[in-house]
């Protein structure tokens, strides 16, 4: 870093004023575009979303068509990953499982972000007793480890055939972390000058909240949403692995890993493929979260 004496004033003032002003988002996008982490994870995520939307492009096999005569069959033409114990095509199940994992992750994240930021924004914006009550509720949910809480709730719905039970349970125990971050973001934005200016110009508190405070508090919420997506996918797989997550009729990586558990010593590859698919998906979202964090939080930018 150069000392003050070495830097002429002219140079300090020589900001190019003719250049168009860049917003925080444009600035973040420029940082993102140059980040190799973002490019790699972006390509992976686009690919994963494509597989989830059009599984038929990648395999013609039906993941639920299993014949026992194929049980533990080796890889062959048209069945690159071989067959599992029930004689199902492992490759087809990995391809179709993408949709399940991704839907659960995205739906949970959307609900969590919506409710978490709503509650957090209300708590931060209203302050006083509203904040006190909401913050205590957040503390209570925070004290329950997510996996345990999810298990307690899910054991009540073991007969349900819907993926929504897992989505809602993840959301039920996940919204608090977003609420905390949204609250502190709103608190720090609330007293900034542009809000005072907006109030002086006659806007109502509600207009202030939706037009100024929420848009300016979005960055930390987006960061936690991206990182959480990966962790919800892991949680879903863990719950399905424990046998209380998704119904067994749904093709899911967690369920397949759980079923292949007993094959560890004899046919580890049946266990291997869905695990790798799961790990790559989660890795993609975690890398994306890191990249987004670097772009939106200038303080954490690595030199």
């Amino acid at each position: 870093m150069a000392s003050i004496e070495e830097t002429p004033l002219l140079k300090v003032d020589s900001v190019d004023e003719s250049a168009p002003a860049t917003s925080m988002w444009a600035d973040a996008w420029r940082t993102l575009r140059r980040n190799p982490l973002f490019i790699i994870s972006g390509i992976l995520i686009v690919f994963i979303v494509f597989v989830a939307l059009f599984p038929g492009v990648f395999t013609r096999e039906n993941p639920n068509y299993c014949t026992l005569e194929n049980s533990l069959g080796a890889a062959s033409s048209g069945h690159p990953f071989g067959f599992d114990l029930q004689g199902c095509d492992v490759y087809a199940r990995v391809v179709y499982g993408t949709r399940t994992s991704l839907s659960v992750g995205i739906l949970s994240t959307l609900i969590v972000v919506f409710f978490g930021s709503l509650v957090g924004a209300i708590a931060g914006f209203c302050g006083g007793w509203v904040d006190a009550v909401l913050s205590r509720i957040v503390d209570i949910f925070m004290a329950i480890p997510m996996l345990l809480g999810a298990i307690v709730v899910l054991q009540m719905f073991r007969t349900s055939e819907s993926i929504w039970k897992v989505v809602l349970v993840l959301a039920l125990f996940g919204w608090v972390s977003v609420a905390r971050i949204a609250r502190s973001a709103v608190l720090s934005t609330k007293n900034l000058e542009f809000n005072t200016a907006s109030t002086a110009l006659g806007s109502t508190p509600m207009r202030n909240l939706f037009r100024h405070i929420i848009p300016n508090s979005l960055a930390p919420i987006i960061v936690i949403a991206t990182t959480s997506l990966g962790s919800y996918i892991v949680s879903e797989a863990t719950l399905s692995f424990l046998g209380i997550g998704l119904p067994t009729t749904t093709v899911s990586w967690g369920g397949d890993i759980s079923n292949a558990q007993s094959l560890l010593r004899t046919d580890p590859m049946v266990l291997f493929y869905p695990s790798v698919a799961l790990a790559i998906t989660v890795l993609a979202f975690i890398m994306m979260g890191d990249a987004v964090k670097d772009a939106l939080d200038p303080k954490s930018r690595t030199a």
Binding site: V234, A237, T238, F241, L271, I280, V282, L283, I286
Partner: peptide, 22 residues
């Protein structure tokens, strides 16, 4: 460390069991 975060515990467990145990 990035890999360890992305791989769920049960997968790490199986890998450990298979490689170090079996």
């Amino acid at each position: 460390s990035l890999l360890l975060i992305s791989v769920p515990t049960f997968v790490t467990g199986f890998v450990g069991q298979y490689v170090l145990g079996v």
